[in-house]
Design a protein around this nucleic acid. Structure first.
Lengths: 144, 144
DNA sequence: GTTGAAAAAACAGAGGA
DNA sequence: TCCTCTGTTTTTTCAAC
């Protein structure tokens, strides 16, 4: 992992669909060399995947909320949560509550309905997201 | 936006670097037609970008935490947070605390040091992430 | 890690349901 | 309007160095 690898990671974090030919021009290195570095970064698990980032709003999801909660049935809740399209992120956390989830619903009302339908207790008042200042900042500096 | 568009979105959410030729084979549609649909989805803002997903662990970030806090200097904090590599997500939220941030640091100790260095007050005990059950679930169903 | 040729894919045009 | 077909350009892959 050197400066060139960091540059590759930072560039792909900004635009994962950039052609390798263009990437290689940007970092002034031959295409096969960049391809080989990329292959290694994927193999080592530094790069875990490539994702299209979608607009929740354009897909009719107008409410984003974080909910802290407790559950005894960790295993059951995990199975449920994987099938619930509303839950996009799920974290096991330290502290009074043992889970944190990020939930996307169409409206505030559908958020309330969804929470009622979850088999959880002791959940916090939903932390409604008023605005997302930024999200998914790159883990590697862009000016390497 | 029809079923085919949803299929394109869901496929690109799983692998954003898939060649359009392969994508077009998967959904049994010609390449130019898929290219045109993709162009429109980007133009409409349904697709906001393509990102490489990196492993925090492989990059030396062993601690992930969510921190709720209050600040009066919203503008100043936003400027600071954009330059702080530790803060990867920042949300303005409803409720007693007015901000939620996701922070990645090398260790628990560096998390403590970072929070001390932030010009915020009334922040919650950091919600340390013990494990990420899942993250970034697709906003569109995969079985469309 | 570089160069250069062959294969594959992306792009841009005309034509058809 | 949206899709298909075809030729051209670009990109990727694979060889040898």
């Amino acid at each position: 992992m050197d400066q060139i690898d960091y540059k590759i990671l930072s560039t792909l974090n900004e635009n994962a669909r950039i052609p390798i030919s263009e990437l290689s021009r940007m970092i002034a290195m031959s295409q096969p060399a960049v391809t080989e570095r990329l292959r290694k970064l994927e193999e080592q698990g530094v790069i875990t995947g490539y994702r299209a980032e979608l607009s929740p709003h354009k897909l009719g999801k107008h409410t984003t909320a974080f909910v802290l909660f407790k559950t005894n049935n960790c295993k059951d809740f995990l199975a449920f949560s994987e099938t619930a399209p509303e839950i996009v992120d799920l974290y096991r956390i330290s502290g009074e509550y043992n889970y944190l989830m990020k939930v996307l619903t169409e409206t505030n009302e559908s958020l309330a309905r969804f929470l009622d339908s979850c088999n959880i207790y002791g959940y916090s008042t939903p932390l409604i997201v008023l605005s997302t200042s930024f999200e998914g900042k790159s883990l590697v500096a862009s000016n390497v």
